[in-house]
Design a protein around this nucleic acid. Sequence first.
DNA 1: ACTACGAGACTTTTT
DNA 2: GTCTCGTAGT
Length: 727
Amino acid sequence: MSILSGLNPQQLEAVTLPRQSALVLAGAGSGKTRVLTTRIAWLIQTGQASPMGVLAVTFTNKAAKEMLARISAMLPINTRGMWVGTFHGLCNRLLRAHYRDAGLPQLFQIMDSADQLALIKRFMKSLNVDDEKYPPKQLQYFINNTKEQGLRAAQVEALDDFSRKLNELYAAYDELCQHEGVVDFAELLLRSYELLSRNEILREHYRGRFQHILVDELQDTSRLQYLWLKLLAGRNNTVFAVGDDDQSIYAFRGASAGNMLSFEQDFGAATVIKLEQNYRSHGNILDAANALIRHNKARLGKNLWTAAGHGEPLRLYETANDLEEAGFIVDEVKALAGDGVELSDMAVLYRSNAQSRVLEHALFSALVPYRVYGGLRFFERQEIKHALAYLRLIANPDDDGALLRVINFPLRGIGSRSLEQLQEEALEQRSSLWQAALSRTQNKARGKETAQKKGIEGFVALIELLREACAGLTLQEVIEHVVEHSGLKQQYQGQKDGADRLENLGELINAAAGFVNESAEGSSQNMLVDFLAHAALEAGERQAGEGTDALQLMTVHSAKGLEFHTVFISGLEEGLFPHEQSLVAAGGLEEERRLMYVALTRAQRRLYLSFSQNRMLHGQTRYNIASRFVQEIPENLMQRVNTRLNVQSSAFSVENKDASVLGAQLPTLNSQPSTPWRIGQNVLHPKFGAGVIVNAEGRGSDARVQVNFHKAGVKWLALEYAKLTPA
DNA sequence: ACTACGAGACTTTTT
DNA sequence: GTCTCGTAGT
């Protein structure tokens, strides 16, 4: 069967375009990845390109893996030699191959954002910079953003004192990174961009090789990534770019959807193809999405349609508060699950992570299995970071960040005082902390001894011991040895929550084994460095619990690229979605609207929109009105599931906040109070005596009330356990 | 040197 | 509400 069969005319046209640069405007669910991968397969199959001559770049590791998998499925070729990966992954590959030309040490390490922030804080302290006036986070943002614009400090024109100072710090930061042999994410890109633009031989070599460049999610590329592509493409290579300006939701981190606008001109793209047929959603859902996104001015313009029918109307639900909203979602999920919809085929989306808690709580109480995306990723866990820090020190002891992380973990009695001294010495000698520690140990050998030196000395000895022991071992053995002998294992064995951490450390060894299997060759020395780069570039899965059928909870951002039978978009309130903080940013509202567009287009069959009048946020109740995005969807596409709109909520009017939902069935709108507990109610407690209920939360077995006792003060009590009696 | 408590933050996120 | 960070106390 031909790889081309089943493509619609526009898809076919895109896949089989003659050798030229082209832009494919691919709407949500229009088969964008399929077009991209089929194009690659077609180029190879028809002999227009060799696998070695193709470079395909995506934004996430997940997308890169997906692409490789699809290509392998279509063609019987070894994809190993192909350059398919993320911008960062490919740049890392380039820099490793030409580290000397790029001016980097052979074993340069990659810092993730947390490492970078730690380094910034450390170096600001050493320079005595006021971190009130120049918050480290802001400097980090400045550095990354400037790099993503393709600019070094020397190229920045600072207009005011503040940015001049930031830029000064940027320059100093780069110097420090160079000194320590570490590279941040943006540096990978900028460094390889500079390498190619400076070094004509290399540039021509790679231009000669990659005659076909394919780009996924063009709307998410930064200016630097765009320049990088342009540089690599030169005059003769073709760039086949796929993107959707309406799904550009990462402008806040430097993505520039404007790259889509300038692409035609900059790359001499002769053709723009629109993929507008959607294979994912029913008509009403698409109509809603189209109507919404039409409110945006800055668009290339595109209208999704489907051959499937209209389907159901969207369901709109309004509640009095976030608990009821969660209750409603739980009930609907249960009902749908009863009707045979897989839990994993339903998703609850929200604008910000903080909203997940109420939902989790309700789901937990209702015994509905769920999986939350977000939060700590595997390689970001404390114990993993610690283990990696030891490994980094084995690869390169001059890595100050790694040293600081573990010099006193497990505790070795090296406190801030000793560290300060060590840092001073390093500064004086203009050397790394490791070198300073080393020279200390040597001094000590000449006879001087204090209690403080003992700790550092012990650490130096440990690292040297580890280095010696690990020479010649395989990667797994190295990690096993380090976990065992660094003291990490012992440390966690003694802790009550240590079991999980130990398990993760075991998992790290497995990950290393898997990594070795996947990568083709390489000595064990390089293997360690490669693995560390892998750990930084690919932080791993968000959460365990794969495989089990569970309801999916995630932010709208993380839902991009996914699809579900049923989608709940919760918290559709002004201030939350669109988020109030987005409204001050230029183009912020339009980005929020695109975010809503992404959310809507995740649904295949059924789509719920919900919002609530009150919501607990940051420990305070906020009163909200419905999101403007709800109004922007035509009424005739929606069905109000409840008619609560003008019904005075008996339970939750503002003045008369009432605990009557406690124990009540959810989420019946007009349910009568089924328990006697109310705010303002006088109660008696066997131990605390008399008091008044002042607040309440939860329901059923989770219900808690806050009681102001005349003698004992204010306390939260679980209704299920506290022996309260009405008085 | 380490631990505990309090103040302040807190949109979205990949690499 | 909950997490992180920095300082004060043991």
